[in-house]
């Protein structure tokens, strides 16, 4: 697909918007439909589109596999850390009310952080799956 100019140009135009949309879905998830899962999947889809058009090696340069692997674990860690942070401030595990001076603001902050963790893990896992499937050449049979 490297020689075809139309998909390449269209993809170049599209990817910023897809990434923008992923961030919008992530941070607007409190007020409209959306959230960590959707944002993570959209983010991964943008990188996958890039890999499909410009080739896997280029995509690996943009998002190196070690970074993706780190993302997988990092998301779960963020989620767990938010829970433990609530515990350290004298409440139950995953109670966000104490994260901020105001209980409602604390809840809001907690939800944002947790969604960010979910987003990072989902995007990491989806990308890793794609890299592994695409990086495996056809078996000579």
């Amino acid at each position: 697909m490297r020689a075809q100019i139309v998909p390449r140009v269209v993809t170049k135009l599209f990817i910023p918007f897809v990434l923008m949309f992923a961030l919008y879905v992530q941070f607007h998830g409190d007020y409209g439909p959306g959230g960590g899962f959707q944002a993570g999947v959209t983010l991964a889809a943008a990188i996958i589109l890039y890999a499909l058009i410009f080739g896997l090696p280029n995509a690996r340069r943009v998002m190196p596999p070690w970074l993706v692997e780190a993302m997988i674990a990092l998301g779960v860690l963020i989620f767990g850390a938010v829970g433990v942070a609530g515990m350290l401030r004298g409440e139950e595990f995953l109670d966000y009310s104490v994260l901020s001076a105001d209980a409602v603001a604390g809840q809001h902050l907690g939800i944002l952080l947790v969604e960010a963790g979910v987003c990072v893990t989902v995007a990491g896992v989806m990308l890793m799956i794609f890299y592994l499937f695409a990086g495996r050449g056809r078996r000579p049979s």
Partner: peptide, 19 residues
Amino acid sequence: LTAIVVGVATLALGLALVV
């Protein structure tokens, strides 16, 4: 919502086994 995302994760695991 959670079921869908878990579903795609298990689908991917199944496909990896198929490969």
